[in-house]
Amino acid sequence: MSRTANALATPGAKLIGYFPAGYPTLDASVEAAVAMCESGIDVLEFGVPYSDPVMDGLVIQHATEEALRNGFKLKNLFDAVREITSRVQTPVLVMTYWNPVLQFGVAEFARELAASGAAGMITPDLIPDEAAEWLRISDELGLDRVFLSTPTSSDQRAATTTNLSRGFVYAVSTMGITGAREDLDKLARGVVAKIRNADPEQKVAVGIGISTNEQVKEVNEYADGAIVGSVFVTSYQEGGIEALKSKVRELVAGLN
């Protein structure tokens, strides 16, 4: 059974929080991630810096570019995850673009992930159609695999994604890339409905454009969790780890 799905299945609204690995340094990113977990996020999405992050807005791109400039290497990722999972119980999902995984070796990457205590992987530029090796090895190792479903996904594609995801399905709230938006799109409800229709038991979390406590609450009325990223990076940039903690506490306030 998926640890991530279990975490989302307990009573109350849920918050999935993103932070980039290696930003601004590897140690600092571990401290930030642990602080987010201790401050109340339910699942950690730990992002792998990549040179060409087409699903990310400028806030995250600038942060991950800095991580790469500061020397982030893939082999450090697993040490960082091991450190985080030794200090907190929160499930950790690694969010990564596909080419770093391909170059590391899909099976080898998966084994290192499992050994480091990560729950699984979110793959923003890998569709299930191209994921044969990852599907096989994640089954073998019992790793969560989170695919994306979007407002333009057909019913059939939404069903495939729902059936092949484990942990949860990442419902893209609106057409666009990551970054805070003021009005959370109504499209999100439609995406979630398609996923529920395909499998009422599957967990679904909504991401992209969520940055306030009110939005987190609203999303949790119809989904199993809200995913927040850019605003955490911004908070960290403005006030370091204390600002990050208070942003997490602000977003989880009153979630029951």
Binding site: P124, T150, T152, V172
Partner: peptide, 12 residues
């Protein structure tokens, strides 16, 4: 070859 893109683009 292939289609290694976000799901958002598949319909297009």
């Amino acid at each position: 070859g292939g289609r290694f893109v976000p799901e958002s683009l598949i319909a297009a």
